[in-house]
Design a protein around this nucleic acid. Structure first.
Length: 275
DNA sequence: CTATCCACCTGGCGGC
DNA sequence: TGCCGCCAGGTGGATA
């Protein structure tokens, strides 16, 4: 599920529910997700007020009064749902409940458990091991032609792998890398350092466009459930190459979309539109 | 330093 | 129907 647009959609959906609210209780139903929960995780949060919810790359950061920060990652299959009033019994993969007054629960569900929750604090946040190497957010001004071309110039790897690297750009995943490269007319197999100026410029622009379009599609589907089905769904119609192998490219109408394997992961592209 | 590989999990799907 | 292998939106940490 979650690349930048999905995580940001979750953030926007949860923020009005969480902001300024006191955590009445926190229920943790296992010892670990991808990593163990910190000791006394629930205890340290109980009774505290949430200041706000921010995002860094694909991490959600829940800022707590007193300086604690909950670092949350949704992994591949993580999902946060807002429940009101008649709270259903937790299912097999409902690992954490954040409970608020008036029978409101924010429930974390994650079948594969590649997600994580841990604790840091405002002072150490920037240098936290999960966050300190993360590159510029593509929706911020820190991400631009200068910063990207500099990052790519000394890379000895493909542009596909480079864009997946969170140190270079924060928040892209397997879907949006393929989509961004397609819209920029760049083959995913090109070496990162081989891109010419105009190609890097196109990439910067198209990465923003793709993410913003996905964000707008996600935002429009929000009600009191954040991403209720845990799948892309709402944006699938806007994907031009991802998951469309063997389909005719609807831009050039000349070639079928190809699927290849790069460092163990699928890449989709159009051999006519991209070179 | 950088690039690559593996491990961590469950569920869904196609093929036999 | 059932079983098996393969695939899936991520990434920290080990290894070379």
């Amino acid at each position: 599920m979650p690349e930048l647009p999905e995580v940001e959609t979750v953030r926007r959906g949860l923020e009005p529910i969480l902001e300024g609210q006191k955590l009445v209780s926190v229920i943790v139903r296992r010892d670990d997700l991808r990593i163990p929960f910190p000791k006394n995780f629930a205890k340290r949060l109980t009774g505290k007020k949430i200041i706000n919810l921010t995002r860094r790359a694909k991490y959600l950061l829940m800022h707590i009064e007193g300086g604690d920060v909950v670092i949350i990652h949704l992994g591949m299959s993580g999902n946060m749902k807002i429940l009101k009033n008649n709270i259903p019994q937790p299912g097999k993969h409902d690992h954490v409940d954040f409970c608020f007054i008036n029978n409101i629960v924010v429930r974390y569900n994650d079948p594969r458990r590649f997600g994580l929750m841990t604790l840091s604090n405002e002072k150490k946040l920037q240098t936290h091991r999960f966050l300190k190497f993360i590159g510029p957010d593509p929706l911020s001004n820190n991400f631009n032609y200068i910063s990207l071309s500099k990052s790519l110039s000394h890379r000895k790897t493909t542009i596909k792998a480079a864009l997946l690297d969170q140190k270079i750009i924060a928040g892209l995943g397997n879907i949006y890398v393929s989509e961004s490269l397609f819209r920029s007319g760049i083959l995913p197999t090109r070496m990162a350092r081989s891109l010419i100026n105009v190609e890097v410029e196109k990439l910067v622009a198209n990465i923003r466009v793709v993410l913003i379009e996905a964000l707008e599609a996600g935002g429009s589907s929000l009600n009191d459930h954040v991403k209720p089905d845990g799948k892309l769904g709402y944006f699938q119609n806007n994907l031009k190459v991802y998951g469309r192998d063997n389909e005719m490219c609807n831009v050039c109408l000349e070639s079928k979309i190809k699927k290849i394997r790069q460092s163990g992961r699928s890449t989709f592209f159009c051999p006519v539109c991209q070179n």
